[in-house]
Design a protein around this nucleic acid. Structure first.
Lengths: 207, 207, 207, 207
DNA sequence: TATGAATGAGGTTTCATTCAT
DNA sequence: TATGAATGAAACCTCATTCAT
């Protein structure tokens, strides 16, 4: 049905601002309902702009969700700071706890990303490719950081360690999503940090 | 050209078989595309029965997907056998490797379940509730098994350990889903088993 | 969806009783929702018999609703007794009040009938024809009775009077349906009886 | 063959006109077939706009039918003019005859309204509420007019008279709907006017 | 820089009905 | 005397998208 008059009539509409409003709405909805669950109509209703305006700013739905991922990742990188020199157990634990807090602070990015990552679609959305790609970037950064932590490990071992670190983080995020308040995410991440440290030490010892 | 599977019009009514065919189709599609991505039309096309017949066997889409989860979980439990007495490092590693293999053998159940678990919908699908519930069952079973492994741990510690075990498994599954052949799931699960063992030992030592 | 096990398992099912159960359910639903609003599925759910059983007892939906009208009319005739000799004002008022009570006692028949009567469908349901026909019977009976009341009126005048009597009754029924408890149907019918009496007297005077 | 009405694809967006076309089609169909009998598909076919366009202009079917009632009532009020001062028998007869003519001129409004009024649905359509409401307005107006006619009546008596007037009108409308050309609606309404006059006089005399 | 209106495809579900048993 | 299962058509409605302004 014809949308009722928008509450705040935008005189002299500002393109950037409209784009941001659309992205805000799409981020929220997509973070909760995934790709298919995010309809242009729902985004339009949430941001107050007509659906056709969304198509002025974004080529199509795929483009919109990809932009959501892109912006969310940039935001995420601001929240989750990985130190250049990840040396020593204490630094590792700091990063672990920081990751837990970043997850709790802005879970939408990872929730949407994981939903996208799990789907197997005939034609893969650009958004999924984008998530996998930015995730890869994060993985590379983590790998570089871990080199400092675990001098004495082979490149393969470092990568395996990084993969395990990421997997654990994903899994703990899901645990928190399912368990809600009953899950102490910080404690779980401390456990994870400890596990990573132990694994690294054992690897070094075995080399 | 190879002859199309003869579209044997089911004259002889065989409800159980039809139900199974519908569930087969729905399991495959939902495992790949998630809840929203699974359309009744697609299920109908895949199983050969008209959409209206699906509604003879299932009340609605929600009911169908919930049935998919239910049956997939039963199947999963047959593939993934948890020993009653999980004692010693070797047994733990066996379970870890077994889990890896079970994941590779039938990934649809967990893929669909995780997609459901991640979604935040205005009205929660029964299927999600069902997944969370069967997952809880699995968690309880694991907790019971771990008691044998780690005599000397408090109940809270065992539960934390179990939660970490499950989270790691989820995360590694996702890593495999994203990374495909480049991920050696068995090796990763061995690492996870080792990590769990280390954590348990450390906890016991600290008590 | 496949209907859940019927509560009372009918061993040695009795055809007449099944038919009656179906008619009971259909009468209730059709009396509330009209022809289109009455679905075989809803009747099936209400009477506990599968839809296919309804087709064993009735040729099609049209046949079912026609049977509802037929049975309801028979029931109505039992409740609403028109005396053979409608002579004098008192008798007229008795009939008026009796009609009011009959309406309140079993409103389903007239409600469904009027809904059917008002509809203009490309192919007219048998049920509508049946209602119009039984209504015609009632009209004829009333006309015969009124002859006694109003000796001195021409045939045309009697028929006009009967038509006005029926119209008033219909209208008052509708007023009660819309107004509910706020309408005193008996009082309104007493007014109607008085009006008919006045009209008849005036007609006689004018002849 | 006469050329089909050129299917002038409305390139130039003219919302008001489209809305009117939809309402025209819906009014005609709903006036003949009632709420359930009015399918969006049929309205779409009749007005030439795709079904999805109907949903641009109206939230849902309920909204559409309610709009039909609203517009039909406005139209009805233009055709049926009730004088402010309804004094004297002649004025009353004029109104009666005017009502008969208005019914014959545009029967759709009342036919649909009565069908809606008779239905008892689990969730009441907005259209029914709207009909009952506009009918109430008409009733109030009539009550006010009758005050002039019957000075000397109590408020309750005037309301009862108005209710009887409305009921008679409804009933006569139905008689015409069923009887068709065999019913002389104007003559019947003259009878009704006379009856109302007699009742009023009798009431005044009795007070 | 935007948007009102439109549109065809497809979504879920219900419909009346049939048929083999 | 029934009924489980099936079925095509059609119901209501939402979808992503386009286009003229």
């Amino acid at each position: 049905m014809a949308p009722k008059e928008a509450k705040t009539r935008q005189r002299r509409a500002d393109g950037e601002m409209s784009r941001a409003r659309i992205l805000d709405a799409a981020t929220e909805i997509a973070g909760e309902r995934g790709y298919e669950g995010t309809s242009i109509g729902a985004v339009s209703a949430k941001c107050g702009l007509p659906a056709s305006s969304i198509y002025w700013h974004f080529k199509d739905k795929d483009d919109l969700i990809a932009a959501v991922i892109e912006r969310s990742f940039a935001h995420w990188l601001k929240v989750w700071q990985l130190p250049e020199d990840l040396t020593g157990r204490d630094r590792l634990m700091e990063v672990a706890v920081g990751t837990a807090k970043a997850f709790m602070d802005s879970p939408d990015f990872l929730r949407l990303g994981l939903m996208l990552a799990l789907e197997r679609r005939p034609v893969e959305p650009r958004a999924r490719a984008m998530f996998v790609q930015v995730r890869e970037q994060a993985f590379e950064a983590l790998t570089r950081s871990l080199v400092d932590l675990a001098a004495g490990l082979t490149g393969d071992q470092v990568r395996q360690l990084a993969a395990y670190a990421v997997a654990g983080a994903d899994g703990l995020f899901i645990a928190k999503e399912i368990g809600g308040d009953s899950v102490d995410l910080v404690a779980m991440f401390e456990m994870h940090g400890q596990a990573l440290w132990d694994i690294a030490q054992r690897m070094i010892g075995e080399n």
